[in-house]
Design a binder for these strands. Structure first.
Lengths: 203, 203, 203, 203
DNA sequence: GATGAATGAGTATTCATTCAT
DNA sequence: CATGAATGAATACTCATTCAT
């Protein structure tokens, strides 16, 4: 299920050090190679035995984070059997990721502009499409589950269906963004709104 | 309607020069003060007569762009009288903004990570909230229009209503992002999906 | 008579600073950009307003030194009217250059390997040939002077004649190199030997 | 006849690896310890079992090359019995050395500035004098041979005689340097000029 | 106000050397 | 003896900012 390759011990040490620094609130632009080395507990030179350049550390850490994140979300979904349970599992994962400064992905993504991200991912741009298609497949499976439960008819327009899930999810992200310190109530409301919208959209 | 203050002649010359550079495909990180000065046709020292620092040029250009963008969208909406016309006006504005490398806002936003953006907007973070509340108000007016036309019942849950618009819009943005070179057909489909979803969500 | 272009004030300040550092016994490889800047009394950044890179400073200083040196030798030769006087003027110039740690050229040349020198002179390799042909012309004029004085017959074989001057000169350089602290006597002997050899070779 | 000490197997492997790298056109400054180790087919650490430092490798390789070169020239001279044959043997050796990128010595010498060379030879500066005196002795023997053949009178001024040989040789080197791709004819002319000059100088 | 030459703090990267295995 | 992963000192170069004109 992991899409990217396996990692050497030291590579992980270094990438995790970078993520800890980001978790501490530092910007990518602020982080120096010496900071990463120190945080990782290795010499500065060692970085360059495993990564071609500072940028390379960033790029590969983004990929590692996406992998880890998706892996986490899917594990959580798979533990639920109902459509509703799976949807809330995703929403809850997203919420946690946004709440947790230490959450792998958001640290990276919120530190990159999209133009910059494209450059960082560079040659590995195809990875993006592989992620997107893996996600799409998962979404359509989920739609199937909902249809099986009789919550809405089986889909006939794949693109519309996918788009409905995307809309509900991103609407939730937007709502979540607008909360400074989300209360349980506000959170439940936002999740409920997303779920309601999804069902209406698919009926 | 412009939320930010008025600008001096030279300030505009400089901010527009920055936007031309971005339009040319350069990253914020790549752009040097000397580039901006040259593109603006002024001396490097002149920049510092109008802006406190390089970062300040960026920050104020972001705001200027948002202003310009929102102004444009609203003008376009106001030219339409029907609910459907207003909705498509917004979707079309977004599409254009994403298609047009020269579109003011996207140049800026796509060059900023959100963490960085927060820092840039800095003390002016309240501006963000003023924009958001202006937008919310406009959205609710729009919902009123739709209700008046009998397309859906008047809203009772303001947050849900706002969220539905946000979801439809962001779903469209996501769909639009997935098109490399959008065909007319694909575009119309994506807009149709967003509009359909919105109506279903509000009924 | 100067073969290379004219120099800006600051360029000269910098090149002369480099030469002072070399005169102080430092190797080219040891000299840092900051050393040059400090010795020149300018900021490190200023170096890069006048030279493209450290290597460029070296390369252009070599050329400047060669110019200066040749200019000096020729001035000295021109002050003498007799063949013998002109020859001794050259030998004496060479001696001085080798004795004087501050002599422009030797500082540079003795710090370069020939492979490195070729690279430094780089695109300006044609300059070398212009210098060599200027020298050859001067040598043949000198041969003419000697023939006019009846010291040896006019030359028929230009290459042999040029080669004889070169041999005598380089033999002197070799002899001079072998002296640690040259006494007046040893010096006069070496010059005498070179002059004798030259006359015999040309008769 | 070898002036420097004998070498261990691995030392030779390493020094020859360095020479191959130089032969390939790389500058001393460009060559890294890892390059030498790789070319020699040993681990980087092994270098330090046989040499104190990178500089030490260079220095001892210079000496090894000089030894090899002189040894080669003298062997060639000894195979000739006539004065003329011996002289041409030397000139031809020099020519070959300059023509052959792989010739041991020139690779080293043409990569060193003289200041640097002094440092490299370092404590072993006395070696230089031993070489020079061995050379001087050989030259005077050669002069004796020429006198025995009646080509010129026996020498009375040792220094002048030595100097004449040095001049002729260095004049040839200078001429040879000026040829880009030496033709047979040009080469024979240059050798003839050197030999002619030598005989004239000694008569 | 406008200019741009001068500045020097700041940083990614290299590579000789070591030493645990 | 042989190795090569780990190290960190060392350094060229950039570029935002200043200020004398």
């Amino acid at each position: 299920m992991m899409i990217s390759p396996s990692y050497k011990e030291k590579e992980l040490v270094i990438m995790r050090a970078l993520m800890r620094l980001l978790a501490r609130g530092q910007t990518l632009a602020e982080i120096k190679t010496s900071d990463i080395a120190q945080e990782a507990g290795v010499g500065k030179g060692t970085l360059y035995n495993y990564f071609a350049a500072k940028e390379d550390i960033f790029a590969r850490t983004v990929i590692y984070s996406i992998d880890t994140l998706l892996h986490g979300i899917w594990e959580r979904m798979d533990r639920e059997s109902s459509f509703r349970g799976k949807c809330y599992a995703v929403l809850f994962s997203i919420h946690e990721m946004m709440a947790n400064e230490h959450s792998d992905l958001n640290l990276i993504l919120f530190n990159l502009g999209s133009r910059e991200a494209k450059q960082l991912l560079g040659g590995e741009i195809s990875l993006i499409w592989r992620y997107l298609s893996a996600i799409r497949e998962k979404v359509l499976q989920l739609a199937q589950t909902g249809a099986d439960e009789g919550l809405f008819p089986p889909y006939t327009d794949e693109e519309y269906t996918y788009s409905a899930f995307a809309s509900a999810l991103m609407g939730f992200v937007h709502a979540r963004c607008r909360m400074d310190l989300p209360t349980d109530g506000a959170l439940r409301t936002a999740m409920g709104n997303a779920y309601t919208l999804l069902l209406k959209a698919l009926n």
